[in-house]
Amino acid sequence: MRFALRLAPLLAIALVFGIAAGHDWAGPAALARALGGADDLRSRLLLEWRLPRVLAAGLVGAMLGLGGAIFQGVFRNPLAEPYLLGSAGGAAIGATLALLVPLGMPSALALGGLSFAGAWGATLLVLAVARGSGAADAAGLLLAGVAVAAMLGAVRSLLMLALSDETVSLQVVLSWTLGGIQTPTWTGLALLAGLAAAALAASLPLARGLDLLGLGDDQARAFGLDADRFVRRAILVGAAVVALAVAYGGLVAFVGLIAPHVARWSSGPRHRAVLPLSAAIGAILVIVCDGLARAMLPPAEIPLGLITAAAGGPFFLVLLRRRLRS
């Protein structure tokens, strides 16, 4: 709780940083003018162009953090990440189709809708494959995830080769896989916020089951948890949460891995704290990284996934080292 209170000012600072950061940094005066409702072009750009993007970045980060916490809890493995069960490969196929095939609908809708469907569909496929082969435990699911991800990767490469007739379109697909937040319309943002709130509401009741799973399958069952059914439910919710993040932000690496760790270090392992804190930490991380993506190499924008991976890679190695040492 104390840590949650400390996060609120951090989140506020990240938001201000996000709004200020860009190839033209907005100073305190410009920010104050914009927040005060001034009608000049700069203020309107900050409020109507940058603010929705910063808020979308926060929501995408929150979903990644939340999804990561759910998947780490389900697999009882601090190295699990939210794209583990095929959602990255599935989303990439959806995005490839949306970007390379004229579908006769607004491109943002097609990209979001198809990548969501791809991410969620791929996880459903992994669950079905694992159940079909009689290996519905964590190890079986992971193996099924690896196999499905390999197949989806092949399908996606084939689609890219077959559908693109120029290098430009391949670049568009590649840049999507590196992650990035687009400025949404206010309607789009409201939809994302509503879905994110629903995702959080569906995730919080998982806390007790995730806690019990941490005692091991057997003990969780002995304490009255229908472990198999719970794991399926948690994966479906987690996959939907991650698919939502992917639909609005592409494949943003490492945030889903890092956020739950920071949450556990600060509040202990109980999931009723870890789930919301992971969301808050994920939001802060993506808002800051998205700001850096805009501001580091003006006027160009660095893909968001590159920044999160560049920061997350070393973190991951340190983590691995600590784990191996203990």
């Binding site: 493995n77 007790r208 806690d211 799973l213 941490g214 005692l215 304490f223 392992p269 109980r270």
Partner: peptide, 18 residues
């Protein structure tokens, strides 16, 4: 049994109580 997370003694008992 093997704990996945570093629960405290009180937390393990609370999980039993849940």
């Amino acid at each position: 049994f093997q704990l996945a997370w570093d629960y405290t003694v009180r937390e393990v008992v609370a999980l039993g109580a849940s």
